[in-house]
């Protein structure tokens, strides 16, 4: 289904110096993400998921190995791939509209229309001139997604994007994300600890081992969309993934 490789992670290693000497966070990690593919990475907390994401997005350099995007080694972040994190990074000193305009070149003639279009797309019409502190958590997330999409990135790096929201809002935002991705296809790399979220959204799920992180198992999610996470097939997959993570449920 995904013929062209978009992102290739090659033998990535990363460690940090600690009191007890070197601490390996990631060792020999290798995988590919297809163009237009939605890959979710799940793993126990503290296993180095965020470090991995920062390496792939270009904010951190690996100790060895490489990350290639479109066959070109990446050095440093760029607007081809935008990161969305749990904390969020919508600038609180700019209005929603100014946030959306931020990543667009000043001399771009259609920048205002684009910003308005994406505010509409995420359901923020009427809030363009509000400041972030006047918005709810869910709306703030929408603003962040819109700010990312407006620069037409090819890749979205989502690091636990909805974890700070309550369960209901998190589900709502997952549906929103699917709705938006149905309109505009992007390659998405999602890090989450929520297995159901991964099953709901992803084409493929990679399970990371405890530190040092490597890929312990991979699951193709072949369920038709729109997905029902409560369906027997989805639940079966969930049990299998949780088992990989070392969690077994009483039968």
């Amino acid at each position: 289904m995904f013929i062209n490789t978009k992102i290739e992670i090659q033998n990535v290693r990363k460690g940090f110096a600690s009191d007890k000497g070197r601490l390996d966070v990631i060792t020999d990690l290798e995988f590919k993400v297809g163009d237009g593919e939605f890959v979710a990475i799940v793993g126990p907390s503290g296993c180095g998921k965020t470090t991995l994401m920062n390496i792939i997005a270009g904010f951190l350099a690996p100790d060895s190995g490489a990350v290639q995007v479109d066959g070109v080694a990446r050095n440093g972040p760029n607007s081809k791939g935008i990161m969305i994190t749990q904390q969020g990074s919508v600038f609180p000193w700019l209005t929603v509209r100014e946030n959306l305009l931020f990543g667009l070149p000043e001399n771009m003639p259609e920048r205002e229309e684009l910003a308005a279009k994406y505010a509409d797309l995420v359901g923020l019409e009427g809030f363009e001139n509000n400041y972030p502190h006047e918005l709810s958590g869910g709306m703030l997330k929408r603003a962040e997604i819109a700010r990312a999409l407006v620069v037409k990135p090819e890749i979205l790096y989502m690091d636990e994007p909805f974890s700070a929201l309550d369960a209901l809002m998190s589900l709502r935002m997952q549906n929103e994300l699917l709705r938006i991705l149905a309109k505009e296809r992007h390659t998405v790399l999602l890090i989450t600890h929520d297995v159901e979220e991964a099953i709901h959204l992803a084409d493929r799920i990679l399970v990371l081992s405890p530190r040092p992180a490597r890929i312990q198992a991979a699951f193709d999610v072949v369920l038709p969309r729109p997905r029902r996470v409560s369906s027997p097939e989805a639940q079966e997959l969930r049990v299998a993934i949780l088992k990989e993570l070392g969690v077994t449920e009483p039968v």
Binding site: P77, S79, I82, M83, L94, F102, G103
Partner: peptide, 25 residues
């Protein structure tokens, strides 16, 4: 740091970084 990272991610020119991020922050 999350704000500086976001600014870095969008790859804006230095002047804009100062005007839109560093000074208002």
């Amino acid at each position: 740091k999350r704000f500086l990272r976001a600014a870095e991610n969008f790859g804006v020119p230095r002047g804009k970084l100062f005007r839109r991020v560093v000074f208002p922050a």
